[in-house]
Design a protein around this nucleic acid. Structure first.
Lengths: 210, 210
DNA sequence: TAGATTGTTAATCGATTAACAATC
DNA sequence: TAGATTGTTAATCGATTAACAATC
């Protein structure tokens, strides 16, 4: 099971499956077929089976997939067995909202460090966590063993801040700054930009009238 | 130029091109080749040329693309000639942060309505905009001619709120609730979920040691 | 002109889908 | 057993890439 062999697009769908399966599990459901899961997710049964089968035989003919078991397997595949520590860098409105968000723990993440360079903000607390000076990133990130950061700084300093984070040992960055970051190979990057999402829709919605 | 003919994946890349071109334009740059743009974006020159050529001949052999002209063309293709009015539904921390965010106007959007169902929040102001009762969505959305909404409500009410929005005339929803929404054909939907982004990276980062 | 770069074609590569034997 | 559903194969479909004539 060489991880290199599995297409990136399949990996990108696994968290979506996991999210839905966890919800179904919380609702007390025990099993689900690829057919039904496909209907819930707006995708095809064949694709779900193909995706899951890359990692083993987790289903059972006639009954489908056992939900708690598949959740466990997906969590293991995605390395979510343990909770990951995450830093938030840039405590503006958005960084603040992320720091206060309660929904990460159930998904495998815990925010354990906050950084900003504004003296007004440094030392303040959010959810019991103290905002630290961004200049301490090079020492604090390795100290805390943090491998993942959410980047919510202005565009003007996003690339350089990302570089600092990578040098400090960060291996994955969830980038909220509306700019493409160029990072060394081996560093994972995901971009979140609401305006991009909106612009992907306006093409189809059309101008005023559609 | 039947819009149906253009692959969705190409459309999804145009806003990313536009974002970078607008930044280069602000920096005063006049022209760019597909080669250079590809390097900035971490993609290939061939793909950029192929994508752009779906809509016309916007480049010039020997010199590349005129940036202001290409920006204008992309804006037109994506129906960003005029500013779109957008509603934010659910004014928690995240909705609040979106309402205060200054970066939308330059990208073609303006937040013109805020909704929540919490009596504590209704009537309060953010950036000069009053939070309105969510029960008024069916009348206010058509009144204001709003076609796009950002949905930042809890998972438990996300689907039903989306249904209400669609019935009120919304044609595109940027969904921040961590659940897949099932909507009628013709309604655009984009999902933003930071935990999904993080989980797409942990597969590659590996457990503790990589 | 010489060099650079586009738009496009054809070839390659990769992803999705349909179908079905296996089997719970 | 009969019905349901998986995992997988082969066929189809679609996207990316390489290459180059056209041309600025």
């Amino acid at each position: 099971m060489n991880r290199k062999d599995i297409p990136r697009i399949i990996i990108s769908r696994l968290p979506v499956y996991l999210r839905t399966l966890q919800r179904l599990q919380q609702e007390g459901r025990q099993t689900i077929s690829s057919q039904t899961l496909g209907e819930i997710l707006g995708t095809t049964a064949a694709q779900i089976r193909k995706d899951i089968s890359q990692f083993g035989e987790f289903g059972k003919q006639g009954t489908g997939y056992n939900i708690p078991y598949l959740v466990e397997q997906l969590q293991h595949i995605l390395h979510l067995d343990d909770i990951w520590d995450v830093a938030v860098v840039g405590i503006g409105d958005l960084g603040h909202a992320l720091a206060r968000y309660q929904g990460f723990v159930d998904r495998g993440f815990r925010i354990t460090a906050l950084f900003d360079n504004d003296p007004e903000k440094i030392g303040r607390q959010i959810q019991g966590l103290t905002i630290e000076d961004a200049s301490l990133i090079p020492s604090r990130i390795p100290e805390l063993g943090i491998k993942i950061a959410m980047l919510t700084v202005p565009v003007s300093v996003a690339q350089q801040t990302a570089d600092v984070l990578v040098r400090a040992g960060v291996r994955g960055i969830l980038n909220y700054a509306p700019i493409h970051l160029n990072l060394p190979e081996g560093v994972c990057i995901e971009h979140i930009d609401p305006a991009i999402g909106l612009q992907r829709m306006t093409y189809y919605i059309g101008q005023r009238k559609g």
